[in-house]
C-alpha cells in the first residue's frame, strides 16, 4: 500500500525532523492526517481501477454509479459516526432501514403518495431511534444490548409486515427520482441527498454546541456531566439522529430499488461501523470525523465496483475487503504516529 505521507526526505535524524518539520507539512498540519491517508488509499484504488478497466472505470456513468451505490449506506454511516463518537454504538441501523422501507411501501402508505412514503419512512426511523435513545439514556441500558434488541424486533416487525413478500412501489414520483432523466446536471438526486446529509452532518459536528457536546460525552461522560451538560438528553438526541438518518436512507433505498423488502439493509450496521472505523472514528468514542467516514464508505464502494468490473467473484471480494480494512487502519496509525 502506498503511503500518501512519506517520511521526510532530509537526512537529519528523526528527532530533529520532528522538531523542525518539512515545509509542506505546515500546509498539511491543519488537515487531519488520517483523512489524507484515506484519500491516498482512495487514490490508489482509483489508479488500480483505471489501469485494469480504463474504459469502464474512468467513465462518468461509473462515477455516478459508485456515488449512487455509496449514498444509502453513506447516510446511515453519518448517523452512526455521531453515535460512535459519543462512545455508543447502534447495531439496529440495518433493521431500522428495513422496517422503515417496508412500512413506507405498504399498499396503505402508498395511497398517500410521495409525501406519505417519505413521511412514514422518516417517522419510523425517528421512532425507532427514540426507543433506542430512551432505553439507553433513561433506561440505563448498554447501547450494544438496547440496539441489539431493536435489531431483532425491527427485523421481526418488518418480516411481519411484508410476510416475506417484495412490496413494489407504484408511485411514479418516487420511481422517477431513480431514473437517469431526473439527474440534476449529471448528479443523481440520491447523490445530492447524500451530499446534503454529509454537509449538514459536518456542520453539526464541527460548528455547533451539539457537535462539541457529542465529542465531550464520548471523551469523558462523567466530566461532561460535571461541566453541567445533560448527558442523558444528549444521548437521546444522538440515537434519534441515527434513527433519522436510517429513515432518510430507507427512503433513498426505496427510490433506488423501487421496492420495500424485509431483507433490505442487510448487515448495514457492520458496513457503517467498518466505514466509520476506517474513517478514523474511535470505537471508544471522543474522536471522529464525518469526512473520514464518508471516505470510508467511498473506499468500500469503489472496491466493490472495481471487483465487479473485473468480474472477480464475491469470495475474492470479501477477502480483499478484510485485507483493506486492516491495511487502511495500519496506514492510518503509522501516518498518525509520524506526525
Amino acid at each position: 500500500m502506498t503511503q500518501p505521507v512519506s517520511p521526510p526526505r532530509d537526512d537529519t535524524p528523526k528527532l530533529s525532523s520532528k522538531a523542525e518539520p518539512a515545509p509542506w507539512r505546515a500546509v498539511v498540519a491543519r488537515a487531519d492526517v488520517r483523512t489524507l491517508s484515506l484519500l491516498g488509499v482512495l487514490a490508489v484504488l482509483i489508479l488500480i481501477g483505471g489501469i485494469t478497466k480504463p474504459d469502464e472505470f474512468l467513465d462518468t456513468r461509473n462515477l455516478q454509479l459508485v456515488l449512487t451505490q455509496a449514498s444509502v449506506i453513506g447516510v446511515v454511516t453519518v448517523g452512526m459516526t455521531f453515535v460512535i463518537i459519543s462512545g455508543g454504538i447502534d447495531l439496529s441501523v440495518g433493521a431500522i432501514v428495513a422496517l422503515a422501507s417496508v412500512w413506507a411501501t405498504t399498499v396503505a402508505t402508498q395511497d398517500y403518495g410521495f409525501v406519505g412514503v417519505l413521511f412514514t419512512a422518516v417517522l419510523v426511523g425517528v421512532g425507532c431511534g427514540l426507543v433506542n435513545g430512551v432505553l439507553i439514556a433513561y433506561g440505563a441500558m448498554v447501547p450494544f444490548i438496547a440496539t441489539l434488541a431493536m435489531l431483532a424486533s425491527a427485523r421481526g416487525l418488518a418480516l411481519q409486515i411484508t410476510d416475506g413478500n417484495t412490496q413494489v412501489v407504484t408511485i411514479d414520483g418516487i420511481l422517477d427520482l431513480g431514473e437517469r432523466d431526473s439527474y440534476i446536471l449529471g448528479v443523481p438526486p440520491l447523490v445530492l441527498m447524500f451530499a446534503v446529509v454529509t454537509i449538514i452532518g459536518w456542520l453539526v459536528l464541527n460548528r455547533t454546541t451539539f457537535g462539541r457536546r457529542t465529542v465531550a460525552v464520548g471523551g469523558n461522560a462523567e466530566a461532561t456531566r460535571l461541566a453541567g451538560i445533560d448527558v442523558r438528553r444528549q444521548r437521546l438526541y444522538l440515537y434519534l439522529l441515527s434513527g433519522l438518518c436510517c429513515g432518510i436512507a430507507a427512503f433513498m433505498l426505496i427510490i433506488l430499488s423501487g421496492s420495500g423488502q424485509n431483507t433490505n439493509g442487510n448487515l448495514y450496521e457492520l458496513d457503517a461501523i467498518a466505514a466509520a472505523i476506517i474513517g478514523g472514528t474511535l470505537l471508544s468514542g471522543g474522536r471522529g470525523t464525518i469526512v473520514g467516514s464518508v471516505l470510508g464508505v467511498l473506499i468500500f464502494t469503489t472496491i466493490t465496483n472495481i471487483f465487479a468490473l473485473n468480474n472477480l467473484q464475491s469470495d475474492v471480494q470479501q477477502i480483499a475487503k478484510g485485507a483493506i480494512i486492516v491495511a487502511a487502519v495500519l496506514v492510518q496509525r503509522r501516518t498518525a504516529n509520524t506526525t
Binding site: 478497466k53 469502464e56 467513465d59 456513468r61 461509473n62 454509479l65 449512487t68 451505490q69 417484495t166 433505498l253 433506488l256 430499488s257 421496492s259 423488502q261 431483507t263 433490505n264 439493509g265 442487510n266 466493490t304 465496483n305 465487479a308 468490473l309 473485473n310 468480474n311
Partner: peptide, 17 residues
C-alpha cells in the same frame, strides 16, 4: 444475495462492466 437491494447493486455494476 437473493434480495432486491443486492440485485439492483450487482446488476448495475454488471451493466457498467
Amino acid at each position: 444475495e437473493f434480495t432486491v437491494e443486492s440485485g439492483q447493486a450487482k446488476m448495475s455494476q454488471l451493466l457498467q462492466a
